[in-house]
Amino acid sequence: MKQLFKFGVILGVICLTATLVLAVTYQVTRPKIEGELSQEEQNALKVIFPAADSFTRKTMGEMEYFEALKNNTAAGYCLKITANGYNGFISVMAGIDPSGVITGVSILSHQETPGLGAKINEIKPGENDQWFLRQFKGKRAGKLEVKKDIDAVTGATISSAAVTTAINNAVNAFFKEVKNKK
């Protein structure tokens, strides 16, 4: 019994030290991690809504979005969307103007298979943006269909469809919320 107690104490001390060390490391790295994330978000916003000069973060119900401001008036919205990809979630940002026409799409993170699904974010040599995401630009979101309106990535129909459907659903839900509010 005494031995068991000793084991417990030693293990407890080690666990406590480990937790302390981690808590300190977390506090040290947290500002940098969060800064990095919001920096990425800002970069993505500029890519999907180049016309705007500033963005304000807003929430509506469960939805998180950014209002794109131009000369202090709302020129459109950038929605944060989560798509159910092939291997897990795909985190997407899509910019739309007030009528629902897409101004740009950007992928923040994904876990799709390299060489297949990952090509939703591929930049072809000699080009400077993603060919798959470029297709969305200027199209009206809501009823987009893969293979009809949007060319799927070869061998990754599921990933391509996931992004497209998620954008449709998010935009539809967004406008429904807006209408309800009015």
Binding site: C15, A18, T19, L22, T25, Y26
Partner: peptide, 10 residues
């Protein structure tokens, strides 16, 4: 969340 690895493996 940062204790995920530690707690899960334990």
């Amino acid at each position: 969340e940062y204790l995920r690895t530690l707690s899960f493996i334990l």
